[in-house]
Amino acid sequence: MTVALHIQGLRKSFGGVMAVDDVSTHVAPGECVALIGPNGAGKTTLINLISGLIKQDGGSIHLHDTAIHHLPAHRRIRHGLSRTFQITAPYHRLTVRMNMAITLAAQQTGATWRWSGSWPASIDAAADAWLTRLDLQSHADDLAGTLAYGDQKRLELGLALATEPTLLLLDEPMAGVSHEDRSSLMTQAKAVLEQDKPGAILFTEHDMATVFSHADRILVLDQGRLIAADTPEKIANNDQVQRIYLGQSGASHMVGAG
């Protein structure tokens, strides 16, 4: 069976702290998987390991049967990986359109090395199409750094999607987003992903409503260890998860949401 992401025995320690401790799991194509756990459980570390921003101490990461754990971050993108950051980081000195254009250009060999002051016409057109899709066309000529936080998040999601990922990693996509805006991120992101080839999503999130309404499966991390990986219903009724992470009130919330 070919899987979107396959992790085997992944380990990473900072000093004496095991941030990610022997984690093995997989994500199927088209699947939407949530990664939850208390603060400091190792969620962001795991995302950083998969995207290659930090180097693992041991273990392997495969993307569609290709080993990527030895590749630098920028090479992993070529294998269909993409991500957003917990704190948004668009290219703040450039306009929104240029943010999009550079990301698209980075997917083509040589486009970011050009002497010419303009992008190939195909890139300009594609950038505008993306801005329309993200509903950012009215901000196309604004500097990314001056956008409202919600718009920056949307731009960042667009930048991540523009690399045409088969696996999209979202690090707390809802953090800092107001409550009424949280409704339909996953369905929308999934809609974009499903266009060409089925894309999978792995996301970390603290907002349980988002997790339980969108995740096909939930992975629970605690102190670097993967303690459960199951469907939302089963996770909601898992005693261990309730005890170490959610507490009583969380569990009732889960049952209601699930």
């Binding site: 995207s51 921003l53 630098p72 971050a73 920028h74 090479r75 993108i77 070529r78 990986l81 993409s82 991500r83 950051f85 980081a89 668009p90 290219y91 703040h92 000195r93 450039l94 240029m98 943010n99 550079i102 990301t103 250009a105 980075a106 997917q107 486009a111 970011t112 090395w113 050009r114 002497w115 010419s116 002051g117 303009s118 992008w119 960042e156 930048l159 991540a160 690399t163």
Partner: peptide
């Protein structure tokens, strides 16, 4: 050089190195 696409991507890298890296832009050769 200053107004080339190359310089734009170098500016992008300076603005948000992490974002650039995960967009497939490798800073070092640039």
């Amino acid at each position: 050089v200053d107004r080339s696409a190359f310089s734009l991507s170098v500016r992008a890298i300076a603005d948000a190195p992490g974002r650039a890296l995960v967009s497939g832009l490798h800073p070092w050769p640039k």
